[in-house]
Simulated scan of single mutants.
Amino acid sequence: MTLVDLADGLPQLRLGPGDALDRGALRGTALVLVSDGLVVVRTTFPGSTRRMITCHAGAGSLVLPPENGEVLFALTDAALVPISLLVRDEMLSSRESARLLADGLEETLRQKQGTIVSLSRLHHVDRVREKLTELAREHGRVGRDGIRLDFPLTHDLLGEMVGSARETVTRALDELQREGFVVRRGRIYSVKLEPEQLTTS
């Protein structure tokens, strides 16, 4: 059984690419399960145009509902299952369901810790390389150019993920393309790694 199986029959919210949900739209929600698609948690800062992506979640992932200044932002068509406090407590009463919830939250926490470590890198090209590897591991598909990221990845979006300015990300991607680490076709990127390398990267 998976988290998606566990939430089967619960109401879903459908989002299109670029749609966002704020705290008010998910009032009374304890957890949010991504049953399909890819969403990110985007944070804005009062009095600033700066934005930061603190988490990305694909099918089967759990995230907390957004706090003030945060939104859940869809990068692709997505389906979300809001899990209320009552439903969460019912799930926790079952050992198997509780284990699935704990495992899902553990994965989300591990990703957030990885993001913090990556942001400590002094060289922006290393931040971008690590983020692309992480995205390939969690959301990529094997293609002719390596592991393909099947969602539009703009320089602005990648900058929000790694805490760098758009121009800095552009220079980092240029360097990674010269190295042969990444291949770009339009707005779709592929990371030149073998699938087995992702388990140890």
Rank of each mutant, 00 (worst) to 15 (best):
V40L: 14
D145S: 12
E90V: 15
P17V: 15
Q113M: 10
D174I: 04
D22A: 12
G140V: 06
A59S: 15
L15S: 04
A165S: 09
E96C: 05
L86S: 11
G60K: 10
V169F: 07
L109T: 08
G104E: 09
L119Q: 11
E107S: 03
L86N: 07
L31M: 11
F73R: 14
R148H: 03
T76I: 09
F181V: 01
R27A: 12
P152I: 13
L10P: 04
G140I: 03
T76C: 11
D36N: 04
S48R: 08
R99G: 01
E107Q: 04
R137H: 12
H155C: 06
V32W: 07
H124N: 12
P195W: 05
V117P: 01
V32T: 11
Q12E: 15
R121D: 08
H139F: 14
P65L: 10
A136D: 02
L132P: 04
V4N: 03
V41G: 01
L10K: 05
A59D: 08
L173E: 02
S190H: 12
L85T: 09
M161N: 05
R42K: 13
V87K: 10
L176P: 03
D126I: 09
S97Y: 11
V41P: 01
L86K: 10
E179W: 10
V87I: 12
E96P: 03
H124V: 15
H56C: 12
T43F: 06
R99A: 11
T108N: 05
E175Q: 10
D145E: 14
L75I: 08
L101G: 00
G47S: 07
S97V: 13
A165G: 13
Y189N: 00
L15T: 05
P66C: 09
R144G: 03
T2Y: 00
R23H: 04
G24K: 09
G146M: 05
S35E: 13
T115L: 13
R137V: 09
A7Q: 01
L13P: 06
G16L: 02
R121G: 08
V191D: 11
C55F: 09
L3W: 00
F181Y: 06
E90N: 09
E179K: 10
F45R: 09
P65D: 10
P66Y: 08
A102F: 14
L26Y: 09
T44K: 02
R171L: 12
G159Q: 11
E96I: 12
G180Q: 14
L109W: 04
D150A: 13
H124T: 15
R95Y: 05
L31D: 12
R148Y: 03
F45P: 02
A172C: 10
E70P: 07
H123D: 05
T76K: 12
E160K: 04
L101T: 00
R51Y: 01
